[in-house]
Design a protein around this nucleic acid. Sequence first.
DNA 1: GTCGGCTAAGGAGGATGATA
DNA 2: TATCATCCTCCTTAGCCGAC
Length: 593
Amino acid sequence: MDPKPEATAPPLPELEMHHHHPAVANFRSFVTEMAVALASKPLTPAHKSLVQKRLIHFFPDAHTPRHPVYAAMIHRAIIELNEQGGSREESISTFIQNEYHDLPRAHSSFLKHHLWKLCESGEITMTRDKSYLLGKREELKIKRKKLGRPRKIKEEEQMESIDMDIRVTQVQNTVVEEQNQLTEKWDEVFAEIQDEVIVEHDQVEEQNEANRETNQAELQNESLENELQEQENRASGEMNTPQKQEAGVRQEQNQPEEGKNDAAKGQALSEEQQIEAIEEKNQSLVQQSVVLSEQDQQQEQEIIVALGQKQQADQRNRIMEKQSQRVHPKRLRSDSQAEKDKPKKRIKKSLVTCIIPDLPPDMPLKFRERIEGFNASEVVFVIQKRLYKTDVSEGHNRLFMPFSQIKTEFLRPEEKTILKNRNGKKIPEIEVLLIEPSCEHDWTMSLKILEMRKASGQLSYVYNLGTNWNKVVSNNSLCKGMIVQLWAFRVDSKLCFVLGKVVTGDEDDAIADQSTSASRKRRKKLGRPHKIDLMKEEHRPKEEKEIIDMEIQVTEEQNKVTEEQNMQTEIGTMYENNGRSNSRASGRGSHHR
DNA sequence: GTCGGCTAAGGAGGATGATA
DNA sequence: TATCATCCTCCTTAGCCGAC
C-alpha cells in the first residue's frame, strides 16, 4: 500500500455567514470545552496548512479590513461633505463607500451603530431632520471664537490640558492592554480548536479511506468467486443438488458479510455528518476571525491615538524642562562666572573685612532722640558718601556703598555669610530698617552685597541698599552731589540705619541727569511730565523748602564742628608720628573714639 | 575703584473687541 | 452699557559690564 498522502478535506457546501447561525452557539460551547481539555495540545504544520487551505477555500475574501475605524470615517465624511445643517446618513454612507473600499458586508448596520454611538458620546449631534453635525458644544465654541478675540492659552492651562490627556491616555492604554490580553487568549483557544478540528477530520478521513479499501477488496473477491463458480457450472454441464446446496450455504454465508458492508456504509455516513459539523465549526471560526480582525483594527487606531497622547506628554516634559532651564542669559553667565570665581571671592575676603579706621562724626541730636525711642544698641558710623547720578536715579533705586569707603563694620559674621553665599541666580539680601533724614519715615529696605568684576578679572564689592530707596530720595529731595552720612544700630538684633544729609548738591543737575532713561525721552515726546519733573523747585511747597534750608544750615554747622575735630586729630597724629608727644596724641584719639 | 549706561524680565494700566 | 478677556505699551527693577 502507498504511503498516505497529506490529508485533504472533501468539498463541503459553502455556509452563509451569519452572526446568529446555530453553529456559533455550538462553537462557543465547543470552544469552552476544548480550551479546558486541550490546553497543551500542539498543532502540527500539516494541520496548520490544512486549516489555512480550508479557510481560503470557504472564505476566499476573508482578511483584515484596510479602512479606518468607523468613527474616523464618519468624522471625515461630515467635515468634507461640509453640508449646511449637517450631513444625512445616506450621504455619509455614500461618501464612505466612495472613499473606502473593502467595507464589511454589514456596512449599513455598522454605520448606523457607530452614528448612534458617536451621538451618545457627544462627538456628533443629530439634528431634527436627522442630519449629523460635529459636536454641539464644539460648534458653539467655534462660533464664540469667531466673534471674540482668541484667548491666549497660558502655560499652566496647557500643562493642565496635557496632564488630562496623559490621564486619558493611561486609561486608554489600560483598556488596549486588556483587549490585547483577551485577544491573545482568544487566539490561543482558536489555535487549540483548530488542532482538534484537524485531528478529528484526519481520523474521519482515515476511517473512510480504510472502509473504502475494504469494501472494494471484498467486492472484487465476490465477483471473482462468482465467475469461478459459473465456469465450473458450465464445465460440469449439470448442477447436482449437493452443489446447489453448497452454493446456497455459501450464499447464506455471504449474506452476513453484505450486512457487514451495510454497517460500514452506515458508519461512513455518520462520519460525513461529523465532517459537516466540523465544517460548521470551521465556518464559525472564520466568523470569529473576522470579528477579531475588526477588534485588531480598532486597537491599532487606539494605539495611534495613544501615540499621539504620548507625543503630547513628551511636549509637556519639554515645556517643563524649558521652564527649569529658563534663565536670563546674563544671569546664566553671571552664575557660571560666580561659580568660576568662587576661590577669588574667598581671596578678596580679607580685603573686604579691612575697615579703614577714621574718626566718626557725632550723630546729630535729632537722630539720637529718634533712635532712643527704639531702645537702640551697637550704634556705629558706617559711611559718609557723595551721592552720584545712579544713587539718585529713579531707574536704579539703590544706594551704592563701596566696601573701601565703609568706616566701621556693621554686619555680624553670620549676616555677612548669608549675604556672600550666593546660591542660584538670586542675590541674597537681608531686610533692614532705614530712618530717613527728615526723621518722619522709616523704610523697610533690602541690603545686598554686589560683586563688581573689573576687566582685569579683579573683584570689588559694594553694599547695595535697595527697595524703597527711591522713596527716600524723593521724600528727602536727595540729589546728585549731596553728601550723606549713614549710621547703623541694632534694635533687638535687627539691623537699622539712620541717614543724614551733610552737604547739598546741584539739584538742577540732578534733575537733569535723571532724564537719562529712554522712558523719560518717550514721555517727553508724548508731552507727559515725568515724576521727577514734579520734584523741581517750582513744584515744591514753601514749607518743604524752609525745612530743607534749615536742615542744610544744621548740617553745615555740624560739618564745621566735624572738620575742626578732624583737624585737631590730624595735629595729634602728626605729634604721634614725630614721637614728640605720644601719650598726648593717643589720649586725644581715644577721647574722640 | 567707582560711576554710569544698557538690557531683560515682569508688572501696571490703557486700548480694543465681544458678550450679556 | 457694563463687564470680561486679551493684547500692547510703557515703566520699574535688578543686575551686569564697560569706561574713566
